[in-house]
Design a protein around this nucleic acid. Structure first.
Length: 480
DNA sequence: TGAAATGTTGGGGCG
DNA sequence: ACGCCCCAACATTTC
């Protein structure tokens, strides 16, 4: 084989494999851009080896999204004269080695992942391939900053969000983003299996409502981002806590799968900030940027505390008297039959659409971990399987935050009252009405406490007394 | 990115 | 006119 050489004698990689993972986009994809710029032939691949994630394999809802996102990525690559090669197996390394052998690829590049299992795996793959003489280049696409790159002056990782985000801002949020390549060079490789073979779609007809609420894929992610960033974002501060409104960006799943780039989003925000005089609008834009900051913070925390997916970060919680018998209470919570309207609305929205409004996520998590006093892992596991945007870092942080056992967490005495929260953030009861049809006929003044209406057919009485369960939770927390 | 208990104030009814 | 009670409305504290 002919080797091209730089003047300085370094061989030029002629065939490069671009390994797609949680970066299912063509724009601002540095691994892809690098491959296109440095190779004569670029072969995009997706390797399905779910077992490598161990206890935290992607759940069913997440896989639904992945299926459709991959389909769209494959179509977009076809339009650029290429073809996505899909392979599956118990682990990624042999699949890569096989592809390297078939194609004679001299280089592999990818965008980095940061979950503990992925860090270990990718490190091993990089070393193994380098020993074989394959050139490896990795890039940052999923985060604004490397989780290890943000630290205090003394080198310690952050534990408090506000300080962390302040540091991020001082490091510079605006970072150049690249556009999608017009064409991938070289002949497409006709190998691998079909998307259908991965069996990512549920076997039961559970996802039928998903497609009426979501359109996975880069195209729609960019449209959604554009719609949000050029319009509604200025109302974000007011609207984001109202579950009945479309006040949030709804970009969480797209961000998780990398259909849109946090760099592009934050750059748009900064540009929009420069054009906005209205103080409320500016506050809204900053608030949205801070939400992207929480996403960074979650990865930072997980990177520095790899056990936090399964263990409470605060060691005192090892002795917390969680309710052991989960049976009826957990099931009622999962099914949206707790008797608390806004809780049940959220849990049913989750089941039917694979997504739940963030304010309501906090409420259902507070009810589960405090009023029902069930271990936060029960909730984290359920969310993991049912959320289309399930993300290991954000999920672990969120649950530990609500349960009060994480860093910078809500204090133990902060227990949400679903009735008051309902009245405050869903004053008309529209959200409840949409997801809990049994309650649709109730007056807004009592829709958040239907027991005051003398009960509603087919709708359960409250699972617990808010007053008593609150007292009992405070008692348990004080015991720590 | 709370809620409930407790404390304070001030207006109105009433003896 | 005055003191007293009641109780919103709001502020502070405690969990």
């Amino acid at each position: 084989m002919i080797q091209l050489h730089h003047p300085d004698g370094v061989p030029v990689a002629r065939t490069t494999l671009v390994w797609f993972r949680d970066d299912l986009r063509l724009h601002d994809n540095p691994a892809l851009a690098h491959a296109v710029a440095s190779s004569d032939r670029v072969i995009p691949v997706y390797l399905h080896s779910p077992a490598e994630a161990g206890d935290w394999q992607a759940g069913a809802a997440s896989n639904w999204w992945l299926h459709h996102s991959l389909a769209e990525l494959a179509a977009a690559l076809e339009q650029r004269g290429s073809r996505l090669v899909i392979e599956q197996g118990p682990s990624a390394l042999p699949l890569l080695q096989q592809l390297i052998e078939t194609t004679g690829a001299e280089a592999v590049c990818w965008n980095r992942l940061y979950q503990p299992w992925a860090l270990a795996r990718d490190d091993n793959i990089e070393k193994s391939l380098q020993i074989q003489g394959v050139s490896i280049d990795t890039f940052r696409a999923g985060l604004l900053f490397e989780p290890r790159a943000v630290c205090k002056d003394n080198g310690e990782p952050y534990r408090v969000f506000t300080a962390f985000w302040k540091r991020c801002q001082s490091l510079g949020l605006y970072q150049p983003a690249s556009t999608a390549p017009a064409r991938l060079p070289g002949e497409p490789l006709h190998a691998g299996c079909t998307l259908g073979k991965l069996q990512l779609l549920p076997t039961i007809n559970w996802d039928r409502h998903f497609q009426t609420h979501w359109q996975p894929g880069e195209t729609h992610a960019l449209q959604r981002a554009e719609t949000f960033l050029s319009g509604d974002i200025e109302a974000y501060e007011e609207a984001r806590d109202r579950p009945a409104l479309a006040g949030t960006s709804c970009l969480s799943a797209s961000l998780h799968f990398g259909e849109c780039s946090p760099r592009s989003l934050v750059n748009h925000c900064i540009e929009r900030l420069d054009m906005t005089d209205d103080e409320a609008g500016r506050l809204s834009i900053r608030r949205f940027m801070a939400e992207l900051g929480w996403r960074e913070f979650a990865s930072h925390i997980l990177y520095n505390n790899p056990a936090s997916t399964d263990n409470s970060m605060n060691p005192r919680f090892e002795h917390f008297p969680w309710q052991q018998d989960t049976g009826h209470a957990l099931q009622s919570w999962q099914q949206g039959m707790t008797g608390f309207p806004i809780i049940d609305a959220g849990m049913r929205q989750l089941w039917q659409t694979g997504w739940m409004h963030n304010r309501v996520r906090m409420l259902v998590a507070s009810l589960l971990t405090k009023n029902l006093r069930l271990h936060w892992l029960h909730g984290a596991r359920w969310f993991w399987d049912t959320l289309v945007d399930a993300d290991l870092a954000s999920n672990s942080l969120g649950w530990q935050w609500v349960a009060g056992c994480g860093t910078d967490a809500a204090p133990y005495f902060r227990i949400f009252n679903p009735v008051l929260q309902g009245k405050k953030f869903d004053p008309q009861g529209s959200y409840v009405r949409q997801w809990v049809p049994e309650l649709a006929g109730l007056d807004p003044r009592i829709i958040h406490e239907p027991w005051k209406a003398g009960g509603v057919p087919d709708y359960p009485e409250p699972l617990v007394s808010l007053k008593d369960s609150r007292e009992s939770a405070l008692q348990a927390f004080r015991s720590l």
